[in-house]
Design a protein around this nucleic acid. Structure first.
Lengths: 156, 156
DNA sequence: TATTGTTATACTCTATAACTATA
DNA sequence: TATAGTTATAGAGTATAACAATA
């Protein structure tokens, strides 16, 4: 670990490239969300609940948010008809959140649009290079996930 | 909550991997910012102004924000002693924003910490693989930048 | 007239603390 | 007592519209 890594700006590190691509991706996601009147967080919640239900606390933990924040997010999405709540029959304290048909429909459209927005960024790479990039990125994403400690209890 | 809830499907695409890694990176940046009482946006502004000055409008354009939003961000950072404003001598309408010595110092510390946080994610890759990943990521980042049309004058 | 920046306003996002209901 | 969720509160982030100062 070189302590003065920040001093050397001439050679860009892989770490810096990851930060930069992250900013571009999130910028695109924010724009796509805004075009559909969704914040980045709402976009993400909708994506998560596209094909499963989740408890308020689990969703909050997964997103790294407080449960009260999650409550508000679900409130607003519910008011817009994108999400809905169910009392959990097995535990009266629990509230299961899920996407309405409109929510699911919107989530699918958003997912397609996001992939379409991202595709042109990969144009400079040949097909074999894309496969190579995917293969190299996968272990990094997996490790990031592993190291990102957040109580993730059984969704479904 | 299952980890890659927001993407899906049997065969994960490279596009999905980019979205996932972006969420993890931004999650880490948000956490590092929070540990220093900075929002993700403030963290980014400070990073940008670490080694240059910029006009309010240019900064806003670069970040994809309204100039009024930028005004507020600078207000709060100025109140904390991290940023400061200068009247531009050549054009009386323009306000140049720059980091104070404290701001520069904090920005350097944050940059180091961010690189330190990211490094472990790359552990699964051998040194040659990291070089390979960096080489494949670079054209993608460059293309993302090229396609992300935002008038960026002065600064970078 | 056009541009630069600020202010007023109205949201959303966010966490903390206090609360209710259930276990 | 402990857990799940909501509500009250306060502050930050955000855009739109109106404004002042300068060009």
């Amino acid at each position: 670990m070189k302590p003065d890594a920040h001093v050397d700006d001439s050679a860009e590190s892989l770490e810096d490239a990851l930060v930069r691509i992250a900013y571009y991706v999130v910028g695109m996601l924010t724009r796509v969300g805004a075009e559909n009147d969704l914040s980045l967080t709402q976009l993400r919640v909708l994506g998560i609940l596209r094909d499963r239900r989740g408890r308020v606390t689990d969703l909050a933990a997964y997103l790294g948010l407080d449960k009260s924040t999650m409550s508000g997010l679900v409130d607003r999405a519910e008011r817009r008809g994108l999400l809905a709540r169910d009392r959990n029959p097995e535990d009266g304290r629990v509230v299961d959140v899920f996407a309405t048909p409109e929510g699911v429909e919107l989530a699918h459209r958003l997912l397609s649009q996001i992939r379409r927005e991202l595709a042109p960024w990969l144009e400079p790479l040949a097909p074999e290079q894309r496969a190579q990039l995917a293969g190299l990125l996968r272990p990094v994403v997996d490790e990031a996930e592993r190291l990102t400690i957040r109580s993730v209890r059984g969704g479904r």
